Simulated scan of single mutants.
Amino acid sequence: MWPPDPSQKEVLGFAVSCRVLTLVLQVLTRFLCSSTPIVYWFSAHLLHHQEPLLRSLETVPWKPLAGDSPPGQKVPRNSIMGLLYNWKTCSLVTRCILGYFLTYWLLGLVLHCNFLPWT
């Protein structure tokens, strides 16, 4: 039985390299997204400078939006929830940033609960 034949060595080498690759990817994403605030700073910078809805919520957060806003819009205290409530009126950059973070959160929730590799 020992030493293993060449096909067993190849399978073992492939399995070990796949495990090392997933381990490195998990550690890198954990370091980049959890301990480095640059990702969050950059997305906040883009949201702050590119989204007019945030500027209107920033000036008067406790009053409804301007009279020209569509009916049914809500103005919550949390500005991110305000962006989510008014998804259709947000700019493309805002939709991409919010979509990325929502997708990351949902994938992490589903994959982690099923014991799949996710940070």
Rank of each mutant, 00 (worst) to 15 (best):
L111V: 03
R77T: 04
W87A: 12
I38A: 11
V27E: 02
L46Q: 11
T119N: 03
V24Y: 01
V60P: 00
S43R: 00
T103L: 15
R19Q: 04
P76M: 13
K63E: 11
K9W: 14
V93Q: 04
S7L: 15
S35W: 10
S69W: 14
V11A: 13
T94H: 01
T22G: 05
A66I: 05
F101R: 02
V60T: 13
V60H: 12
Q50D: 13
Q50I: 05
W41L: 09
L65T: 04
C18A: 15
V110W: 10
W87D: 12
S7Q: 15
A15H: 08
W105C: 13
G99H: 04
P52S: 10
Y104M: 11
L116Y: 08
N114T: 08
P64R: 05
A15D: 09
L83D: 07
S79I: 01
V24F: 10
V16Q: 06
P37Q: 01
C96T: 14
V39E: 06
G82D: 10
S69T: 14
L21N: 05
K88I: 01
L65E: 02
Q26F: 07
H45K: 04
S56P: 00
V110A: 04
G13F: 02
L109I: 00
K88T: 08
E10G: 09
P52Y: 12
L54Y: 00
L111T: 11
K88D: 14
T36I: 13
M1D: 10
V20Q: 09
T22S: 12
G72M: 12
M81T: 10
D5F: 08
L107I: 06
L107Y: 04
L84S: 03
P117D: 07
P64W: 07
F101K: 01
P37M: 00
M1L: 14
S35A: 10
L46A: 07
P3I: 03
K74N: 10
H48E: 10
R30G: 09
T103F: 10
A44P: 01
G82W: 01
S43D: 03
L83C: 00
M81Y: 07
S91T: 08
F31K: 03
W105A: 14
N86T: 14
L47D: 02
L98W: 07
P70K: 15
W118G: 02
G82E: 06
I38Q: 07
R19D: 03
T36P: 00
P71D: 12
F115A: 03
T29R: 06
E10V: 15
P117Q: 11
L53P: 03
S35K: 12
L25T: 02
L32I: 08
F42M: 01
T103N: 07
